[in-house]
C-alpha cells in the first residue's frame, strides 16, 4: 500500500517539461537499464537533478508537465530518483496515467508560490498540500476514487491482481 502522506523538500522546475526533457532521446539505448537511465533524469533541463534529489523529495512543476511521448520510463525514472510525488498546475494526460499506473502520485494545485527547497507535506486524503516554509495550505483536490485506489494499490498491475478486474473502481 502506498502512503497517503508525503513529506519532502520541493525541487522546482518550470512549465512544459516534456518527456524528452525527462529522458533525452540520446539515452534511449539505456531504456532496458533503468538504474543507469535514471541517473540521466532531467539532465538537460535541471542539471544535477539525480544527484540532488533525496528520497521523499517532491518535484514541483508548472503547466502541462510531462507532455510528449507515451514512454512510461518517464515517471519510472523520476520515482527511481527518489521523488515521492509530483505537484503541478496541469499535467499531460498520458504522463498522468503512466505515473498513477506506476504508483507515483501526481497532484494538481497552484504551485506558483512554492519555491525551491520548501518543506512540503501532501495529505492525499484531505486533498491538501502544506507548505511549512510559507505556513500555507494549498488545495490539491481529492483524486477520483479509481485513481486513488490504483495509487493505493501501488499501481495498476497490483491493483488488477488485487481486484481481478478494472470494474470495481469505475
Amino acid at each position: 500500500m502506498a502512503d497517503s502522506v508525503f513529506k519532502g523538500n520541493a525541487i522546482t522546475i518550470g512549465d512544459d517539461v516534456s518527456t524528452d526533457d525527462i529522458i533525452p532521446g540520446r539515452f534511449a539505448h539505456l531504456r532496458s537499464n533503468l538504474p543507469e537511465l535514471a541517473t540521466h533524469t532531467l539532465e538537460d533541463r535541471l542539471p544535477g537533478f539525480y544527484e540532488r534529489a533525496q528520497p521523499g523529495d517532491i518535484l514541483v512543476g508548472g503547466r502541462n508537465f510531462g507532455l510528449g511521448s507515451s514512454r512510461e520510463h518517464a515517471p519510472v525514472v523520476i520515482r527511481m530518483a527518489g521523488i515521492s510525488a509530483i505537484l503541478v498546475r496541469s499535467v499531460a494526460r498520458i504522463f498522468y496515467r503512466n505515473a498513477i499506473n506506476q504508483g507515483l502520485a501526481v497532484l494538481i494545485c497552484d504551485t506558483s508560490g512554492i519555491t525551491d527547497g520548501d518543506e512540503l507535506e501532501i495529505r492525499l486524503n484531505d486533498g491538501i498540500v502544506v507548505n511549512h516554509r510559507a505556513g500555507e495550505e494549498l488545495s490539491c483536490g481529492r483524486m477520483p476514487p479509481l485513481m486513488s485506489n490504483i495509487l493505493a494499490a501501488g499501481g495498476l498491475i497490483p491493483y488488477i491482481k488485487e481486484h481481478g478486474t478494472l470494474d470495481s473502481g469505475t
Binding site: S70, I94, N101, Q102, G155, L156, I160, L166
Partner: peptide, 20 residues
C-alpha cells in the same frame, strides 16, 4: 489514443481499459 506500457499490458490481458 496513446497510453503507457502498463495500460497496454492491462488491455492486452483484459481487453478493457479505464478512460475518462
Amino acid at each position: 489514443t496513446g497510453m503507457g506500457s502498463t495500460d497496454i499490458a492491462a488491455a492486452m490481458a483484459t481487453g478493457d481499459i479505464w478512460m475518462k
